[in-house]
């Protein structure tokens, strides 16, 4: 019973962070800030759900194979996500996408964009 409550807490925390990230993706003012908000979904959102699901598979379902697969999904999301994020952010900047409001400090433009 206590275990069940712990699992529910993890999954609920994952949902809350995923909700925050989704709200940010919709409402943030420019491309880069939207990407920042989406990182919330892929880190704690995914981690919370993965930990909850893995505990459920190991302890309640009694099926280690399922639990391991869930953990592998979590690890892959965590390791591969930043590679894509670099590429998207840099590609967007090189393509000429700029925030509407001037940024406070912009060293990338100072160094690469004459």
């Amino acid at each position: 019973m206590i275990l069940r409550i712990i699992i529910d807490v993890f999954i609920a925390a994952g949902f809350i962070f995923a909700l925050a990230g989704t709200k940010g993706v919709i409402q943030m003012p420019d491309t880069y800030c939207r990407m920042q908000a989406s990182t919330c979904i892929t880190t704690l959102g995914v981690l919370g759900v993965v930990i909850g699901a893995a505990l459920y598979a190991f302890c309640i379902m009694g099926s280690p194979a399922t639990g391991i697969k869930v953990v592998v999904i979590g690890l892959l999301v965590i390791t591969i996500n930043p590679v894509g994020a670099h590429a998207i952010a840099k590609g967007a900047y090189r393509h000429g996408i700029r925030p509407e409001k001037e940024m406070e400090i912009d060293d990338f433009r100072r160094d690469f964009d004459e």
Binding site: N81, P82, V83
Partner: peptide, 12 residues
């Protein structure tokens, strides 16, 4: 990668 994975900062 760690910096990118932390929400609020992205390495370009």
């Amino acid at each position: 990668n760690s910096i990118t994975l932390t929400p609020g900062t992205i390495t370009l």
